[in-house]
Simulated scan of single mutants.
Amino acid sequence: MPENSSCSSAGSCTKSSCEGCPSHNGGPQSFLVEQNKFSNIKHVIGVVSGKGGVGKSFVTSSLAVNMAKKGYKVGILDADITGPSIPKMFGAHDQILGDENGLMHPYETKEGIKLISVNLLMDNEEDPVIWRGPVIAGVVKQFWNETAWGDIDYLFVDMPPGTGDVPLTVFQSLPVDGIVIVTSPQELVNMIVKKAYNMAEAMHITVLGVVENFSYLKCPDCGKEIKLFGESHIDEIAKELSVPVLGKLPLDTSYAAIADKGDFYSIENDHLAKATEVLERI
């Protein structure tokens, strides 16, 4: 009988071939990718959503700005490779080039937020990225370990929607301290939030909480809150999953206008104050 009958290659196992095998050593293999010597990243925070169009990049940028205004050194890794929007929100259009060590240096905003995105590597930022999943996942790992990040207190990873290749790569390859799930008020989203939550649970990743975007529109005349997408269910979902609600963001046209101008740092977003407190406690 083979030395380790629980091994996937048990039929061909020998005592010598089993040495060093994860099953033989009693634990799963680690896929974590180490930082390079030019990076010192203390905390990695993933921002995820089960579906597109819920404002995940807006929440990512808001969290980064809030932490930067608190005095922390902040970076954003734009892992939404085929739909990158982070650079435009911060007015970043310059190309990133490699150095003599073969490392990329992130774009740094005038306020000190460091950014890495596929749009900053392309000759024309409007060109589509037509790559298969494994290639995209590989680029995300390169953004992590082939970028000279320097000192970073909080690196926010803006992930594409869903539970596919990129979230799986991030959860396995980066030392993620926790994730923030972004959602919107529609009842359909209940299921989507739970999908994101269940993936994190399966990967043993801490869910820091949920943020609801597009919660309401405040009437400019009377101040009444108008529920454009129906009544919120986020409190019930959060209670069911035993995670906190980190904020409820209004639909504010001024936010969109500022982001379009590339002046995102100027947005004052007090709606995520609780999220900021949770991040500071990590």
Rank of each mutant, 00 (worst) to 15 (best):
M1F: 05
S5R: 08
S6Y: 07
C7E: 06
A10P: 01
A10R: 07
A10S: 15
S16W: 01
S16P: 00
C18Y: 03
S23Q: 10
G26E: 07
F31R: 15
F38S: 14
N40S: 13
V44Q: 06
G46D: 06
V47W: 11
V47G: 06
G50Y: 10
G53Q: 11
G53M: 08
T60R: 00
Y72D: 08
G75V: 05
G75L: 06
I81G: 02
I81W: 08
G83I: 01
P87M: 11
G91R: 09
Q95A: 08
I96H: 00
I96M: 15
L103K: 08
Y107F: 14
T109W: 05
K110P: 02
K114G: 12
E125Q: 13
E126F: 05
V129L: 13
G138C: 06
W144V: 06
N145T: 11
F156Q: 01
F156E: 03
V166F: 12
V170T: 10
Q172G: 02
I179H: 03
I179L: 04
I181C: 04
E187T: 00
L188W: 01
K194S: 07
K194R: 15
K194P: 06
K195V: 12
N198F: 07
I205G: 04
Y216M: 00
K218I: 10
P220C: 01
I226S: 08
K227T: 09
E236K: 12
E240Y: 06
S242V: 00
P250D: 05
Y255W: 11
G262W: 07
F264S: 02
D270K: 14
A273K: 13
K274R: 13
E277R: 08
V278C: 13
L279F: 12
